[in-house]
Design a protein around this nucleic acid. Sequence first.
DNA 1: GGCTCTAACTTTGTCGGACAAAGGGACAGC
DNA 2: GCTGTCCCTTTGTCCGACAAAGTTAGAGCC
Lengths: 255, 255
Amino acid sequence: MPISPLFRPIDVAPAYQKVADAIEREIVNGRIKPGDPIGTEHDLVRQFGVNRSTIREGIRVLEEGGLISRDSSRRLHACLPRYSKLTSRLSRALVLHEVTFRELYEASMTLEVASIEGAVEQASEENLAELTDNLARSEAVVGDPAMLAECDAEFHVLVAKASQNRVLQLAREPAAQLFYPTTEMIVTGVAEGGPRLVAAHRHLIDAIRRRDREAGVLWTRRHLQDWRRGFEKIASLDRSVEHMYMEHAQAARRR
Amino acid sequence: MPISPLFRPIDVAPAYQKVADAIEREIVNGRIKPGDPIGTEHDLVRQFGVNRSTIREGIRVLEEGGLISRDSSRRLHACLPRYSKLTSRLSRALVLHEVTFRELYEASMTLEVASIEGAVEQASEENLAELTDNLARSEAVVGDPAMLAECDAEFHVLVAKASQNRVLQLAREPAAQLFYPTTEMIVTGVAEGGPRLVAAHRHLIDAIRRRDREAGVLWTRRHLQDWRRGFEKIASLDRSVEHMYMEHAQAARRR
DNA sequence: GGCTCTAACTTTGTCGGACAAAGGGACAGC
DNA sequence: GCTGTCCCTTTGTCCGACAAAGTTAGAGCC
């Protein structure tokens, strides 16, 4: 016969973790709003009654989670976690789990098609202006694989943004970040690559402007299939995402 | 006229950040493999030539990022970042950005349909066994909204797992984690809710077993539309995800 | 020999204090 | 009004210390 539950399990966690949890709670509960100052380390020492080293460890945890950050003068304040910072963690995890390019490709096919569908339906004039601006810049650097790959990555971020669906924006990020380095390789290796990429973007913008869902989906598929064909000239889709690609993501995260 | 770039920007970062970066690099480069011991704090003090407090701050950063963790005896070792830990951070971000349930619903429609399509194509016997087991447990707790909601969340994780696509598994997690608490509310509020949910699961397993893609997609759509109808009896789809839901995700993360 | 129990030893979590460098603010001087 | 200087605060880092928990090694017992 089980004994009656007289006691609750007691919460035994290191002090720095409790500090981090306490501050996190205040932020997610909304009592501390993004932008609000957290106070100096010394303030926190007084409030929590623990040593400054302990406070600092707690702060590192929150900082890494993107919940708080330090402004130009290194003062602490709460902030809205930036997707790109968090999703780069996920990209890193995908690399370490050695996912294959096939998984990346298939998931992206779904996510990018959903993005364009949302964009066709929801894009504002401002979204279109951003996309058009991106297209112009892409055309200017069509001969420079590195720059073009960067433009391509930005283009798809803008399409997702135009869908006005932030969940979707976030969901596609981890995979997209791993695509980016390969795009450069492909554009370098395939002569037709650059112009075809830019042409696809042009058709996509056109589809969004005309609210033509079919065309949007069609050109997104083609665009991704182009990537796939280019990639398969270099390597097998069943190869796992290489460690070296992480360096790109790592550099991007620091920005 | 711009001056010629004689100097590279110098890398000025706090020591604890450099420590974290150095260890991270070794892990993502594969020189330290998941499971490998990192050494004691004292070892790191010797290797990096900085104070233990500094080392500890660096360790916190990596620990929070899921790259290293402490085993039962609190010794440090590299590890494969667990998706659930990372995605709960994304869920938190979505809450703070006040995304709406409509965004959640529309993104999930895409992601869950993609999951079932993958599952229909790729599911192994083991995946089916897990799903069947989950169904049995769901039927046993159909009267208990909290338990049933938990089973429902697990069911969809298992479907995504059956797709054998880890990118997709990861992409759907943040949205799924925010769904979970609402499922409980809906099952509580709608009399038919529990049985309909279990019935949908049964049809989905059946579709996977028969490799019937159409049926899988159809029942996934219905299942989500059920959720939507139930939700709209309680609140508007355009309401933002409430702060209170975070408490579930927070509790889940600690597990 | 294999087992248990105990006594060092190690490691972590926390503490207190310390100091240099950088930033912010007030204040005088132009 | 702008600039330069001095002072105070804050952060990043260091040092040394100690209790608690875990590890290891060895003594003692079967």
